[in-house]
Amino acid sequence: MQRVNMIMAESPGLITICLLGYLLSAECTVFLDHENANKILNRPKRYNSGKLEEFVQGNLERECMEEKCSFEEAREVFENTERTTEFWKQYVDGDQCESNPCLNGGSCKDDINSYECWCPFGFEGKNCELDVTCNIKNGRCEQFCKNSADNKVVCSCTEGYRLAENQKSCEPAVPFPCGRVSVSQTSKLTRAETVFPDVDYVNSTEAETILDNITQSTQSFNDFTRVVGGEDAKPGQFPWQVVLNGKVDAFCGGSIVNEKWIVTAAHCVETGVKITVVAGEHNIEETEHTEQKRNVIRIIPHHNYNAAINKYNHDIALLELDEPLVLNSYVTPICIADKEYTNIFLKFGSGYVSGWGRVFHKGRSALVLQYLRVPLVDRATCLRSTKFTIYNNMFCAGFHEGGRDSCQGDSGGPHVTEVEGTSFLTGIISWGEECAMKGKYGIYTKVSRYVNWIKEKTKLT
């Protein structure tokens, strides 16, 4: 034993070699072989497995989906700052455009905790909710729209109204504003409101030439003092309507412009014939205590009207009353817009006519005020429907199939267009061939041609 100890002390290297040989010859039971080890760690190889990531292109799944990435790591994937920024906006807080917040056709661009709407022409605001041009839906104005110097929408209202708090709607500024039905039992019968379409306001006024200088022999019209197929109006439903009495009662109609003036057809009036105007009328054979009678003290036909040349060209006249009318729910003026808007309103496509005229061709006159909704007829169809001249200051309205029309005794009465609950004068009943005849239409004086003249002559002093 002493000898062994001496050998170990003198030859430590020998001992180490012996131990190493023993270990190498022993069977290893701690580690699995290569094949079995792979069965336990069965993990798919990654895209760049075996390579240094710093030297390969980034992978979106590896960089940002398996674990949260930084902007720089995302930049490695896209290799483009702009594309990385677009991805980053949604990656950080989701897609803010998912709810489609942009209105009126706006395009949404996502941002971090926010979004941006790219608005089409005519709109602005956070969600493109603000109209900035009158060309689109009248700028959301209830009545009139004008573009300011910086191309912003400025709404306005006709006389007797003021802008509401929203700067879009119009509200009454006087007790009985024009064009409004205020009798409670008839307010439910107000005709369907007309909503502004998209309009090209630059070209809204037709490029028409008034044929002022045409000389033409007097034409022989049949029954051209021209509501057939209409309905009984309720008291106060058309408070701007008046009836004219002269040699015979209810020979023509008219509309209240203001307390002192009536507008009617020029062919209705004769110099030297006494005319009485009755406002607030409903049943011409009954006294309903809503009527107001006034005498006409002055007749002003349009300066281009000449019955000797043509009885229905420039067929418009103004009547001055001896005493002002007292405005109330049964006696209310009709609204008159400017030339541009009167023309736009007419193009809405349908209007209402009213009167006490004959209820059928050569038949009896109506006792109760009649009204009828009539569609506008395109000019080409209008011209083809008659052998008589249709001037540019006239328009056609009615039904091709016949059966409904204005008729004798309705002449001078109103053709009105309702705009968001307020009625505007767009025409004056003038003439036609018979009444409600198939293929024939009622012919009306186009008020847009005469609004400046009306307003100039009827100013209240």
Rank of each mutant, 00 (worst) to 15 (best):
E420I: 06
G409D: 06
F360V: 11
P172Y: 05
T194W: 12
V353A: 06
E61Q: 06
E82T: 11
W261R: 00
R373D: 03
M437H: 10
I334Y: 00
C18V: 13
P414K: 01
Q2P: 14
R191C: 06
Y341R: 06
H289Y: 06
M437T: 14
G125W: 02
N36W: 07
R404L: 15
S184R: 10
G363R: 07
C155H: 00
N393V: 03
Y330R: 09
G106R: 03
K457L: 11
N42V: 12
K51I: 10
C155G: 00
T276M: 08
V419T: 05
K440Y: 08
P239C: 01
K293T: 11
E159M: 08
V331F: 00
G432M: 06
C155A: 00
N59H: 05
G442A: 15
L189R: 12
Q370A: 04
V447I: 11
E35F: 10
E281Q: 11
V174Y: 05
V331N: 01
A164W: 04
P12H: 11
R226K: 10
G398T: 04
E76I: 02
W240Q: 00
E456P: 03
G246N: 09
E433P: 10
G280I: 02
R83S: 13
N295P: 04
Y91E: 05
P324R: 05
S107V: 10
T264Q: 01
E193H: 12
R140A: 13
E418H: 07
V228H: 09
P175F: 05
G412H: 05
A380C: 05
N452E: 09
A279H: 01
D338N: 12
L318E: 00
E54K: 01
K446A: 09
C170P: 01
A397T: 05
N104T: 03
R83G: 09
S25K: 10
F176L: 06
L318D: 00
K459P: 05
C252F: 01
F78T: 03
N222S: 14
Q370K: 11
A366Y: 09
P235A: 10
E401F: 09
D232H: 12
L372P: 04
S182G: 09
F388G: 08
I284V: 10
P375C: 04
G50C: 03
M394C: 04
I15G: 07
A192L: 12
L376M: 11
C407Y: 05
N166G: 05
T389E: 14
N452W: 05
T158R: 01
V174R: 09
C97Y: 02
T186S: 06
K440C: 12
Y330P: 00
E291D: 05
N166S: 05
D150Q: 10
F424R: 00
E323D: 09
D405H: 14
E171D: 10
N151Q: 10
T422S: 04
I17C: 08
N166Y: 02
Y91G: 05
S156P: 00
